[in-house]
Design a protein around this nucleic acid. Structure first.
Lengths: 281, 281
DNA sequence: CAAGCCTAATACCGGTGGGGTATCAGGGCG
DNA sequence: CGCCCTGATACCCCACCGGTATTAGGCTTG
């Protein structure tokens, strides 16, 4: 039994919209062909994927599984396209993706060390893994234990403690150091909520944020606080104060890449530099 | 740009056969449609994938990249089918894959501990990862550092030393223990060669093997030796002698599963048992 | 050196199936 | 009660995939 990516794309669109008409519009086709394609998909898999209902549709358990698997499979196909295209380009640069706010001294030192051209791509928090999985980037700067490193090879670069970034006007800003317990539930400074993969937000008292700069703004306004690696200098606004969190787990900044990526020179450069604290791959 | 899996299947077949006629026959189509499909693929990717030559074809660098990526993408699609089908089956058993020869006491103890039904699937050495990747199995018993664990979550079960399995008639069989250096280059007992992923064999003096039983037979015949974890009792034939290898790296037997697999009960059972030496996941 | 083959590419044709429009069916809500 | 919004069905068309026949170009071989 072999599915075509078209069927997977159709199903993903429908699973995200939960509405045949809107999904069809997003796909640029009419509603009846989508209806038929989904029926055919269910027939070929022998599994009911959605419970149709007036007012739209709802995923079954199997549908949820297929949504996850289909996204991953489509990423893999997308990755095949990107990586093959770049492999065919004789003077392709290596594409490194990092999130806004990661320590740029480390990256600068790394790039100065390699002779080959490296193109740097910036993305928002948590997007690096996706850029690697769909082949838009060859290698990413990520953080353990924050980021999901499943499926990637890694090279540790630096391990460091964490600091709490608090509004300069808040009483906590006077402290020499704090504990996780002290910052985890501060009245008036609830932790911000990041969107899930599907774009929805978890419940909670904190403000909703989508980008680092939004979060920075909220801290400056005295509305929230956060805990991040000590070297994330993007956070050193005048309205911010960094207070070491003594019992927060250490965070390791590392290079991550999918198996087979042509990252040899970069990793060698990283190993040459003293910026490498731990030589495990 | 969106490829269809059909195009990827065609390309993989061609890349493996390196011959349009044979590849088309394997795919069950005629040669001209395959030719056209590959041309179209190259045009859409904007990349030359094969250098056509009388006497067949040869992969370009980009073609090699696409071969690797296409296999991985097709595995992901296949996995989506298998996992969705099983998710739709209300009383599906968990499928655990293990290789012939792995210590069955450990597995027996594990299965006795879980109440849910578990179906055990046996495969040859090195195939477990593929069964996990294409969704035929939910969880595998594998060994670190031998197996490729990229992309899987793991639960360590047991760590142990390694032994050399040598023919009973060989002088080494008299020894109390040996070192890796002593067994790595024994005259008359060259290490066996396993096939690569593409089915070809690396060069070397040792015999070619494809299955554990072939290897066991060759050891009994006095033609080769091997180094394996101490508990692999499948090797205890009368014609075999196990000699501890004092400086071989320890081998960890572990459970491995792709992210999202419904392995909770099994992992909990493993954690409950004293068979767990190291609780890291 | 020419004939014959073995390769992949091209030309052309037919059928399947994916996509379009039009319409139906059924439940919620005014 | 009727309207509307949902997904399902009916039907048609054509794009594209696959088939057969043929061409083009080298390498082998007598």
């Amino acid at each position: 039994m072999d599915l075509e990516t078209r069927e997977l794309r159709y199903f993903v669109a429908l699973a995200e919209e939960l509405h045949f008409g809107r999904a069809a519009a997003r796909l640029g086709i009419a509603q009846p062909p989508l209806s038929r394609a989904i029926h055919q998909l269910e027939r070929r898999l022998g599994v009911r994927l959605l419970d149709r209902d007036r007012r739209g549709a709802a995923l079954t358990d199997a549908g949820r599984v297929l949504l996850r698997e289909a996204r991953s499979a489509l990423d893999a196909v997308e990755a095949a396209v990107h990586r093959t295209r770049r492999a065919g380009d004789p003077d392709r640069p290596l594409v490194l993706v990092t999130k806004a706010g990661a320590s740029h001294e480390l990256l600068r030192a790394l790039l100065d060390e390699v002779s080959d051209p490296v193109e740097v791509l910036l993305c928002e928090v948590g997007e690096q893994a996706h850029r690697l999985r769909d082949g838009q980037a060859d290698v990413a700067i990520m953080h353990r234990p924050y980021d999901d490193l499943a499926g990637f090879e890694t090279q540790d670069l630096r391990t460091e403690g964490q600091v709490a970034i608090v509004p300069a006007a808040h009483p906590l800003a006077e402290r020499e150091s704090v504990t996780l317990a002290e910052v985890s539930d501060v009245p008036g400074l609830p932790i911000a909520r990041w969107p899930r993969l599907d774009g929805t937000y978890p419940d909670g008292p904190g403000p909703e944020v989508r980008t680092q700069s939004q979060l920075a703004q909220l801290v400056a306004l005295g509305l929230t606080l956060l805990v991040i690696p000590a070297s994330s200098r993007a956070w050193q606004w005048p309205e911010h104060v960094a207070v070491p969190v003594v019992d927060a787990p250490d965070v390791t900044t590392l290079l991550a890449w999918p198996p087979g990526a042509p990252v040899g020179p970069l990793v060698e450069a990283a190993r040459r530099r003293d910026l490498v604290a731990d030589g495990s791959a």
